[in-house]
Nucleic acid binder design. Structure first.
Length: 715
DNA sequence: AGCACGCCGACT
DNA sequence: GTCGGCGTGCTC
């Protein structure tokens, strides 16, 4: 991206077009002279630059290739770079009618560029239609889409489908408002609580491009702090983009911005708005009449003008991972934007992901953290209840809840609402050491172990059987499956306090806020309502369920969810208390007690580096029928340092159940292989996978293979 | 993916 | 000669 005259700009390869035509004719035999391009003769063409380079929007077939079309004179004015066009495409029934060549069906595309001549030797078809003169695909967005496609071994057309919303003629007709003048730079506000907070804001306001990993203090101030960062960027005359996990969170940042700057400076891009409104907002951004954007993951591509800052909140939330091909992650897309546009970058959250820690460790970003005294002032008191406590506690066994937890709830309800976090249904219980609860992992590749029907253990990654498992942490040799059933506990809890209202927040009904009055608020992770004066206490139940998941991220995820709930609780000084039912010796539990998510992420990063896990290594998942996967693996020219794990059978998709990306269609038996490469070989691997996939597609050889880079959910 | 092209054997 | 089988390769 730093090269002066980037690769692949087409100029350097092969002989000029006239020569190509000659070569082709001599091969075919001079006695069959090729007709002159009929469209060039038959219809009047644009006088200036009569060739349009078009990206045909047809999935994955013609990976990242452009096709040239002739520009008829009547489309000359509208056929500008970036507009949507319709063209005939396909080898279908070519006819010549009225001197025009027709064939194939009409399909959509984007006009990439106007040129003097084509390097294609055959006759060019004419553009059929300019759908609208609105230039939706600018140079920067195209560059970003191409970088994302390369990074994820996907096609440009797939990425553009994510990046450019469908057209609405009515939205295009509406005039976008005049842009407001840049606001004045805000004061530091609560950023003053962070060591380099005011300096970070000042750098944004001065037009610089600082990059930071921000560990936010608990409490509600974060949304206003993001708003200040945006305002500082606007003050420098540049635009800003903020990506958050869900609509609720977007609404909070929106409120923060409105409070600081009023309306008109920013747009809210979320799925809740209908397609037409959404496109209108997107256009207002693209046209430059709105300089700042807050939105959910689709907003990661928002065409903000003169981008000065990209920011992402809570990057560990899995809704930052796009569900459609090629499944880019918002954090990675924003990282690409920061490098391509040389703008500032901010990743923030109450917790800290391993990926964010890596940005600091590698020196790419600076930490933006508060001192320990600030943390102590804002965080609640965290207490733990482990197995040994439970065993000693008779009352606990009867009621399934330890007395420390009862006590915290009872005390809390005297002064305000109490939050009870229960795990979501539907997680798969997996195997862990019966003694210390460390997840059972393969001795060879450290993948998760699963019990087979016969009772033997098998690795889900490399397929090896494990016959002599013992726990590397404590030496134990007995396994246990993780347990379920916290919702019942919450119900019992509700019955135990009959005078207090019980409110629930979960997937179906997500509460936004609860009033500052005694109430039991039962919620699944991520759906916790904000309590207006902060919760008096929180109870985090069934830590085992969270820690027992076989995911690489189970520890990180559990900590993130606990901290996400605990950050809504009043500071320790105001009596705020959190009780977590989990073994106090476990690392995520200790990190919660000490309120040290960054230290946890840094240690986790070191461990993953040692085990060869992402994000230190890059992984790709290849899934399909056994034959298809085997064929594909044989065809990929992976970098020499690549290591193939598996393939192993994937669990079948049950009929009627939603199908996750990379999972087999119902009724089919698929396998999955993992390919991992050390740092530095990631782009080579992506390129090799893309080439192999393209070759496979072109051959049209039978069954599909799904390729996924950095899948977020590997064992 | 479609869809034409082309090279081969069996037919009016 | 000419019809039509399907294997191969292209789509501006």
């Amino acid at each position: 991206m730093s090269s002066d005259n980037g690769p692949g700009d087409g100029g350097a390869e092969g002989p000029p077009p006239e020569q190509l035509a000659l070569i082709r004719e001599s091969v075919r035999g001079a006695d069959v002279p090729r007709a002159k391009p009929r469209t060039w003769r038959g219809a009047a063409l644009a006088k200036d630059r009569p060739v349009a380079r078009v990206l045909v929007d047809k999935g994955v077939l013609h990976l990242d290739r452009y096709f040239d079309y002739a520009v008829p004179e009547e489309l000359d004015a509208d056929a500008q770079p970036g507009v949507r066009v319709r063209v005939r495409f396909g080898a279908g029934r070519h006819r010549v009618r009225d001197g025009r060549r027709e064939g194939g069906g009409l399909i959509d595309g984007y006009l990439i560029e106007r040129r003097d001549e084509s390097d294609y030797s055959g006759p060019l078809a004419a553009l059929a239609q300019v759908v609208s003169p609105e230039p939706v695909l600018g140079e920067e967005l195209l560059g970003l889409a191409r970088a994302v496609a390369d990074r994820y071994a996907g096609s440009l057309a797939d990425v553009l489908q994510l990046a450019v919303p469908p057209r609405s003629a009515r939205a295009e007709k509406r005039a976008s408002p005049e842009p407001l003048p840049a606001p004045p730079a805000p004061d530091a506000g609560t950023w003053a609580r962070y060591e380099h907070g005011p300096a970070f804001l000042a750098a944004l306001a001065s037009g610089a491009a600082p990059r930071a990993v921000w560990n936010a203090l608990p409490g509600p101030e974060w949304s206003e702090e993001i708003a200040r960062a945006v305002a500082a960027t606007l003050a420098s005359g540049r635009g800003a983009l903020v990506v958050v996990p869900d609509g609720r969170t977007a609404a909070r940042v929106d409120a923060g911005l409105t409070g600081l700057l009023g309306k008109g400076h920013h747009a809210l891009l979320t799925a809740d708005a209908g397609p037409e409104k959404r496109y209108a907002q997107w256009l207002a951004v693209r046209r430059g009449s709105v300089r700042a954007v807050v939105g959910t993951r689709a907003a990661m591509f928002a065409p903000v003008r003169d981008l000065g800052l990209v920011a992402i909140w809570d990057d560990g939330d899995d809704s930052h991972s796009e569900q459609h091909a090629p499944q880019p992650h918002a954090r990675d897309v924003l990282l690409l934007r920061a490098s391509l546009d040389k703008c500032a970058f901010l990743v923030g959250g109450w917790s800290c992901t391993v990926e964010a820690a890596q940005l600091v460790e590698s020196g790419w970003a600076r930490p933006l953290t508060a001192g320990r005294d600030q943390v102590r002032r804002t965080a609640p008191l965290v207490r733990t209840v482990g197995d040994t406590d439970l065993a000693r506690d008779e009352a606990a066994r009867a009621a399934r809840l330890p007395s420390l937890a009862w006590q915290a709830v009872r005390e809390g309800l005297k002064t305000g609402p109490v939050l009870v976090q229960v795990p979501r249904r539907g997680y798969v219980p997996r195997l862990a050491c019966a003694q210390c609860r460390a997840p059972a992992r393969c001795a060879h590749c450290a993948g998760p172990l699963q019990a087979q029907d016969a009772g033997a253990l098998r690795c889900e990654w490399c397929g090896r059987e494990e016959h002599s498992w013992h726990c590397p942490e404590c030496g134990g040799f007995r396994l246990r499956a993780q347990v379920v059933g916290a919702r019942r506990t919450a119900e019992e809890l509700g019955r135990a306090f009959p005078a207090v209202p019980v409110r629930t927040s979960g997937r179906e009904h997500v509460l936004d806020t609860v009033p500052d009055a005694p109430a039991l608020v039962v919620s699944t992770p991520g759906a916790e309502p904000v309590a207006e004066g902060g919760y008096a206490a929180a109870l985090l139940l069934d830590g085992w369920a969270m820690l027992g998941r076989p995911d690489l991220r189970s520890g990180e995820d559990a900590l993130r969810r606990w901290i996400g709930a605990a950050a809504l609780v009043r500071p320790q000084g105001d009596g705020g208390t959190v009780v977590v039912v989990a073994e106090p010796t476990l690392r995520p539990v200790q990190a919660l007690v000490r309120w040290d998510p960054v230290g946890f992420a840094v240690r986790e990063l070191a461990e993953r580096a040692e085990l060869g896990f992402p994000p230190v290594s890059r992984m790709a998942a290849v899934s399909g029928t056994p034959e298809a996967v085997a064929e594909f693996l044989a065809a990929v020219e992976s970098p020499p340092d690549a290591e193939v794990l598996g393939p192993v059978p994937l669990p079948p998709t049950l009929p009627g159940r939603p199908r996750r990306p990379g999972a087999p269609p119902p009724g089919e038996q698929w396998e999955r292989a993992l390919i991992r490469v050390p740092p530095g070989s990631g782009s080579a691997l992506a390129a090799a996978l893309k080439t192999a996939q393209a070759a496979r597609m072109a051959r049209g050889s039978g069954e599909p293979v799904r390729v996924r880079i950095d899948p977020p959910d590997i064992g």
